[in-house]
Amino acid sequence: MKRSFSEKLSSIFIATILILLSIVCLYPFVYVFSASFSSGNAVITGEVLLFPKDITLDSYKSILAKEGLWQAYGNTVFYTVAGTAFSILLTICGAYPLSKSRLVGRTFVAFFIAFTLWFGAGLIPTYLNFKELGLLDTRTSIIVGFAVSAFLVILLRTFFQSIPDSLEESAKMDGANDLQILRHIYLPLSKPALVTVGLIYAVGKWNSYFWAMVLLNDESKIPLQVLLKKMIVEMSLNEELTGSMNAANAMSQETFIYATIIVSILPIVLVYPFLQKYFVKGTMIGGIKE
């Protein structure tokens, strides 16, 4: 088919916009990556724009030497792994019964959950609740306290509902109970949905900082994001106080932060192909964004 001149022109126009957008989305990552491998001096004088300059591993060496950082990294891994496992378990406990239309009281439970989507107690009562439960400054608070996302319960329930009832009925004929049916029929068939739910939980936990910052005081328990936040705030405070800042300090701090950022997003970038695939799936199943 012959395309008119104006159609070609609009194709070029669209492609240009999309390329520009991609550059804007990608550039910060490229810059942070290059800066983390450059000397502090090259970074603060603006010589690093795209590629690393005076390539050095100094920032990564100082990361290796910083003990608190590895501890925070370990904490984040622990919160993510343990928290995701706990979250998936609870989500299945809610989503499976709710996927059965025969269940008496289902509508009530569904409303009970949906209500929390539209009305929340807010920061202070939530904080005081942790205090009353004696969970302040405990790892339990991070793993148990924010375990369930109503959105993901709904997503998993929708997926369970899409599995034909006939499978369940024939298993019942053979004398299987609900737990056996869940374990041997539903869970194996729901692997993609479970991976999606697990990944969404895991990314959320890996990236979360707010409640960890509010609930944890003990330096040895804080996750990476909270430590990063402290470093960044510290740096901008320093810069503010000293105006033109102490050059040596600036150099090490800035590249150090860039290197920390690279180390902390590395796991996400490594699993990114899976993330992209399963998050897109999740958005399609759920129909509604988080």
Binding site: V203, W206, N207, S208, Y209, Q225, V226, L228, K229, I232, I257, I261, S264, I265, I268, Y272, L275
Partner: peptide, 9 residues
């Protein structure tokens, strides 16, 4: 997929 802390940083 990047945390808000890192974006802010």
């Amino acid at each position: 997929f990047i945390s808000v802390v890192i974006i802010a940083g």
